[in-house]
Design a protein around this nucleic acid. Structure first.
Lengths: 120, 120
DNA sequence: TTTTGTACTTACTTTTTGGCAAGTACTTAC
DNA sequence: GTAAGTACTTGCCAAAAAGTAAGTACAAAA
């Protein structure tokens, strides 16, 4: 046991929510603006770093690398680097990452329906 | 396509991404930590403000209200207020909000599988 | 020889989000 | 008459996320 802030109820509550709420559990892993977008790009197959960069022109390189590293640390994708010059690095989904595809596809489907006006 | 801007800014690219990428389109509406959690709570039926507050103890009132208002503005939920004292306010999903249920349920399912170790 | 392309990294600044605490208004219960 | 419950609102400040811009290393192409 380390030092806990006894007065900070929100932090205690967060741990509770993490255990109890399934959506909270997932949001800790892909709960950011960019991560589902990156996963969507990888859902259609492996991509090189530069391919991702071009496919998501609205993201800065800093954000892209940062999120790729976090997704790798969370075991959702794998980075593969070939020791050549110029560098050749590919990213692909892990099993857990592939497990997210139903979520990502459901997201895409909602957008298509929304643009069709299916919810009007 | 016709004319490309050699120095396109992130904001211009964002508009492009918004039009082109379905996941980006959705992330503009529910791409935050709390929104899917709120939608998950409403997926099991209408809830009063205080019920939501108790169901999501890790959120502050300020954040809860703020996100409820944004979700309402984005036409994902409806706020219904009865003119009584003490106040009686309920929140429920719109058609577009209900359309998100497959996404939310897919999220929950991933969590259950992940906790089972299905992706190990 | 300068440029291009690869895949990053770093330092700095701005913007957004979030947390804490207090206040509002009104009524019923104790 | 004080507290509790309802559904918020407001202000201040800290923390986190994101944007900007530059730099790194190396080789091949122009």
């Amino acid at each position: 046991m380390g030092i806990f802030k006894t007065s900070s109820t929100i932090q205690e509550n967060k741990q509770f929510a993490l255990d109890q709420c399934p959506v909270t559990h997932l949001m800790e892993k892909i709960g950011s603006y960019w991560k589902p977008i990156i996963l969507w790009q990888l859902s259609s197959g492996d991509k090189r770093y530069s391919e991702l960069k071009r496919a998501i022109p609205a993201i800065t390189e800093k954000m892209l690398i940062q999120h790729l590293k976090q997704l790798e640390a969370d075991n959702l994708l794998i980075r593969e680097s070939r020791p050549v010059v110029p560098p050749f690095v590919t990213y692909r989904l892990t099993k857990a990452g592939e497990g997210l595809l139903p979520v990502i596809h459901a997201m895409a489907e909602w957008s298509f329906k929304d643009k069709e006006g299916a919810f009007k």
